[in-house]
Amino acid sequence: MSEFQKNCTVRRVETLGCNLIRLTLEAPEIAGAVQPGQFVMVACGTNRDPLLRRPLSVHWADAEGTIQLLVRVVGRGTAALAQTRAGESLSLIGPLGRGFSLEASRPCLVGGGIGAAPLLLLAQRLAEQGLKPLVLLGAATAAEAHILQQAFQALGCSLALATDDGSLGHRGFVTELLSAQAAQADKLYACGPQPMMAAVARFGADRGIACEVSLETAMACGLGACLGCAIPDPGQPGAYRHVCKNGPVFLAGEVLWT
């Protein structure tokens, strides 16, 4: 695997509403190497404050060498990223970790909130294989759902939506959209809140459909050195795996669902 530490010029910072921003960066090495589901470690703020980089999944990468990061502003690091201006540069390390496998013929992608971020690049790569993924998207509101709706539709995905407030699509959890059509899938991909991924994992296990999930934890380095991003290994009680190297994408069976 090849990874890069690069200062990348910010081409665009879009404020999308719903506390979401989309960063477009010139990162040819990373764009060329990234697999869907992989992440970058991004230095936020000035003068190393906050101190640690933030792990962010790659939302989009194109042949022109740009990548996009879809970021929810939740704390000091992401707030600093939201202050970035076009023309400035950000230090990125990546691409890191294990991404999604592209072995599928009838893929179903399930995304909840900001968890949908890595699924767009996945949908794009699956579409390149001539597939038409089924995408189930959960969002808080119609406004949030609209942010990603068109991007998935532009890739030819067939899309079903759920919103917490019922302002668009199904009112309720995105997992309530897992029905007959999803049961026809031969591969489930999920990224979002833990209970959502647990429900998708269960749906797949009950029907014998392979399922991959993308996890998020706090981590200091993203390189397998700090060992901070440990998660329990269901195969070996008392042992741990690491989200940065063994993941962030895991088979559902590799995760201890609580």
Binding site: A218, A220, G228, C229, A230, I231, P232, Y240
Partner: peptide, 23 residues
């Protein structure tokens, strides 16, 4: 050694706390 249960790291002002547990 398997190390400690998570969470193992937390960022603090100009620093971080870790309790990896010598994994």
């Amino acid at each position: 050694k398997a190390g400690n249960p998570p969470p193992r790291v937390v960022e603090t002002p100009a620093g971080m706390l870790n309790a990896i547990g010598l994994e």
